[in-house]
Amino acid sequence: MTPRTPGARDKLAFLLSLVPYLLDRRQSTVAEAAAHFDVAEEQVRQSVRLIAVSGVPGESSQYQHNDLFDIDWDAFEERDEIIITHLVAIDDSPRFSSREAAALIAGLQYLSALPEQADRDVVGGLMAKLTRGASEAPIQVAVERGSTDGTLADIREAVASERQIEFTYINARDERERRRVDPLRIDSLDQNWYVRAWCHLRGGVRTFRLDRMSDVRVIDAEITHRAADVTLPDTLFQTSDDDVSVIVDIAKDAVPLIDEYIASTKPGKDPARVTATLRLAHIASLGRLIVGLPGQARVLDPPEARDRIAHWASRALSRYENDRPQPRDAAHS
């Protein structure tokens, strides 16, 4: 089929598309570009010649040599290859630093590893563009598969097939219980994954953290409660009359990390800190929360909570001392 003759608007649209195409490919033949855009090869050649006399005028409002795009003319005229050798305006656009690009690439690697992420080619292409577009080579990073990845895949399957699941759960009091639930929804918060489900043991909706679940098994039983049948609050954690109130002094920057637990805040003596009231289901869960904010949070009240954190820190220090290698002389004394 003979490509149609483009109008002025089509030519402009093609020209605006051709430049990023060439920058992304770094090198292309006229035939490849024509096939990609479904245009005549001569139109590609005309557009390339137009690109070569395009640019942005300098401070004098006149075009100098460095204000124009340039191509490898020998490659273009002798081998029909298109290679842009000088960019204008585009080179001046803000670029990600190597650390910023590495952080984004790490996030994309994590997304690519999720069970439901099927279009990995798109993610891979975006990672490649970030690598090329950074101000310097990004720091090499790799996202390791988490210990809950298999559990997450099983629960997603159960949610999709509306099947019940059974598992052993370690609650905030470090007690192990066997649970059977109707999984309703999977959520993530910070670095943790949660499943909201109707718990047959408790007779109500409960939130379970995946890294506290073990021996997960999808059973051949249809769920008895669906998401449309129960009320799922917008937040993962809900307060109740049985909750424990804990007052902490915390850095302002750390507040978003535990926002789900905060009932109220007020300014602290230090402008960079606030006094926050936390609502917790069990005082036993305070240790894990505070230890995740090293140097940023300090428990003020009640005394039971302060004692709990002191005991937690004492146990951790004791284990560190016991695990530390002994000096050679002491080992043989």
Rank of each mutant, 00 (worst) to 15 (best):
P3T: 05
T5L: 13
F14E: 02
L15E: 00
R25K: 13
Q27P: 00
E32V: 01
V39L: 01
A40D: 12
R49P: 03
I51M: 13
G58N: 08
G58I: 10
Q64M: 11
F69K: 07
I84D: 00
H86R: 15
H86M: 13
D91H: 14
D91K: 14
R95Y: 09
F96D: 06
A102R: 02
A103I: 15
L108C: 07
S112N: 13
R120A: 05
V123R: 01
G124T: 10
G124I: 11
T131W: 10
R156C: 02
R156T: 02
S161A: 14
R163T: 00
E166D: 10
F167G: 00
R178L: 09
R179L: 06
V181S: 01
R185P: 00
R202N: 10
R202Y: 10
G203N: 12
R212H: 09
D215Q: 15
A228R: 14
D234C: 06
F237D: 04
D243L: 04
V248M: 04
V248R: 00
K252C: 04
A254R: 01
P256T: 04
S264T: 13
T275S: 07
A284K: 04
S285H: 10
L286P: 04
I290L: 05
L293D: 04
Q296I: 01
H311A: 15
W312K: 03
A313C: 09
R315H: 13
R315K: 14
A316G: 05
E321H: 13
E321V: 04
D323T: 05
R324W: 14
